[in-house]
Design a protein around this nucleic acid. Structure first.
Lengths: 372, 372
DNA sequence: TTTACCTATCAAAACGTTTCGAGATATGTG
DNA sequence: CACATATCTCGAAACGTTTTGATAGGTAAA
């Protein structure tokens, strides 16, 4: 079996020097069109492909992007972060990068569990999805690697983030419930330390206030440990047992909303007749539960793509701009929140509340640059 | 900022040669304990980490494993292959490998879409999950890279595979339906080209025959294009419209089973009263639909782990053993198949059919070696 | 005509490891 | 005691690129 061709072989075949081949390979200037053509031709006929390790060693760039994910997120039933990852993977390939995904324990132990690739110079930048130990993020920062956080932000604007417009999503969801005739609207939350959850709660409160409605603490649960299905179940059980009497319910995410539905169905409370429900995220499951769950759709793949575009920019330009992108969201009305009283005269049906994405609006999300 | 230490620095610090440091780094023999200790100490105090690219260039091993997944699988609602990947990722880390995941178009176009890492010598082996174009698999084989297929096998035993024991799973599921009093049991399938689906169908038929029951073509659908939710919906609709009158239904996977449930609920057919249902896979969704779906559980993470162990073996030993592993499965009885008639005297409840995994039984799956 | 500055190419020096063969010392054998 | 063998260590040669600085030739400006 013939050994694979090296850049040497291409040089010989074209009677050019190695350097020139390299210039063509990297699309650098100062190469005549004629030469470029000849080199490309030779590369094709020889079936030459540069070896990644060699490039990496010489150029001090690995061609990889690290993707960090808390293990509990990845193993959750809902493939929320998985979809973000998927978007990243596709976009990374477009930019000729590969992704090294690794999960990290939510509670970071010794230095032992720090991903190897950070030390081995095996990634050129890192994407961190979801809530991860601050220490670790700062550690990566100190290593001098570009970082982009997805669906998470540290206080102090020191790291770039791709975020969901949680605030607006919560407002749209709450408004929808109010406009379909509800006045006693519960909020079910969890992991109050997570900025996203806090923002959704804030949006809920702000909307009630704007409509002149009180914020009734007996209708609010925000202290569940995390936001998984069983916590939704527990939360609504506690809320009802202590005497809360909501007619509608806004859950911090779909998983909790579905947990709530499970409890309500088990106790004979009808949805949406006795209780209208709106969730957040639009995970795949939501359209397949009974009744289908109204929710605020998050464009997860898009988040992954944007994160990649940003980190590639940071890597290429070696500039450490800190930016924040907020992705727009979209209310999706399904059966779990069908209107309770006839809608007000002007509006035909609550479904008109749906905010259609405006073409490529996704990529336009409001975006800010802070400092340089 | 200080430049990161290289192997040179460690050599200087210990007054040893670079070669000796390398020997320690790779846990090779012929190094005295004393020396080994000193070197490790120096490495720690200097904070030295070998650079991946340099190792790769010198040793001709990238330290990466490629993970190939058909795009349609990865973007499916159910995170079936995602869980396989998760298992792989964890196990790969244990063996000091990283995984480069990439999706490939189900229908492979030009050479264009062949994953770059195959040519760039950037992976030491490849795991292929699910059904992927034969040509591509063979192409990888020709490149001389070790391959392990997961949940897929090519005819001819030329590639190693980690498989689900579909045949047994289907038999257990069908038996469960028969023993709870059903005699008209439908089979809903899709993508008949996929070996897994074919095996499940075979297990279904075999069981009916064993019980002396006819295989009624009017109760069988196997020609849906793939196995996603909406195909289950379409399939059962077709089956019922053309006059099939089953009292129970075995679907080739949970996604299709759930599609069936959606159709049945929409048309007022009660589950399990009018129709008992059993699926296959035990995806996360299954325990959260109403009623919860009986199914045959597949240990997905475990499959990923086994695949990694095998490919690491192949890489290390450079031997090209072809092997096949069949992972055991487990029947999980939930409300969608509660028994229809009182169970036979001896058996208290159909739940006793559940096959508990026997401790670490997972790793014991029947395993065969073919040739060397 | 000189000066200055482009363009296209090249030779050689990195990049940080692993590996190979050899040397030096210690250990065992007849 | 001589010789073979085993253990430990080392110098030097890969590995296949990118990058840097130099050179030769050409063109435009002074």
């Amino acid at each position: 079996m013939k050994p694979r061709p090296t850049i040497q072989d291409v040089a010989r075949a074209t009677s050019l020097s190695i350097s020139t081949i390299s210039l063509v390979l990297n699309n650098k200037a100062h190469v005549s069109e004629e030469t470029r053509r000849r080199v490309k031709q030779a590369i094709r006929t020889l079936g030459y492909h540069p070896v990644r390790s060699a490039r990496g060693l010489a150029s001090k760039a690995s061609g990889n992007i690290g993707f960090l994910l808390a293990d509990e997120h990845f193993s959750a039933v809902e493939p929320f972060y998985t979809r973000i990852f998927l978007g990243s993977e596709v976009e990374a390939r477009n930019h000729n990068y590969y992704i090294l995904l690794t999960t990290v324990p939510t509670r970071l132990r010794k230095n032992e569990s720090i991903p190897r690739f950070l030390h081995e110079k095996n990634v050129d930048g890192v994407i961190v999805a979801g809530k991860i130990n601050h220490k670790l993020i700062e550690y990566i920062g100190k290593l001098g690697l570009p970082i982009v956080l997805v669906d998470y932000a540290l206080p102090g604007k020191r790291y770039s983030s791709v975020l969901i417009d949680n605030y607006k999503g919560a407002r749209v969801a709450t408004t929808h419930l109010i406009e379909t005739g509800h006045s006693k609207i519960a909020f079910i939350g969890g992991d109050p330390d997570h900025p996203s959850i806090a923002e959704r709660f804030a949006g809920y409160k702000e909307t009630l206030t704007r409509y002149g409605m009180p914020i009734d603490p007996s209708l609010v649960i925000t202290d569940e440990e995390d936001t998984r299905i069983h916590n939704g179940y527990n939360a609504i059980e506690r809320l009802l047992n202590r005497g809360g009497k909501p007619t509608a319910l806004f859950a911090a995410n779909d998983a909790m909303a579905i947990g709530c539905m499970n409890y309500l169905k088990a106790t004979g409370i009808r949805i949406p007749g006795d209780m209208a429900i709106v969730g957040f995220d639009d995970i795949g499951l939501s359209s397949h539960v009974e009744p289908p769950l109204s929710t605020v759709k998050v464009f997860t793949e898009e988040m992954g793509k944007i994160a990649i575009r940003r980190i590639v920019e940071m890597i290429r330009e070696k500039t450490q701009h800190v930016f924040t992108v907020h992705l727009p969201v979209e209310l999706i009305v399904r059966a779990s929140s069908a209107s309770r009283v006839p809608s007000p005269s002007k509006r035909k049906t609550p479904i008109s509340l749906t905010r259609r994405p405006r073409g490529p609006a996704i990529a336009e999300g409001r975006e800010k640059n802070h400092g340089a």
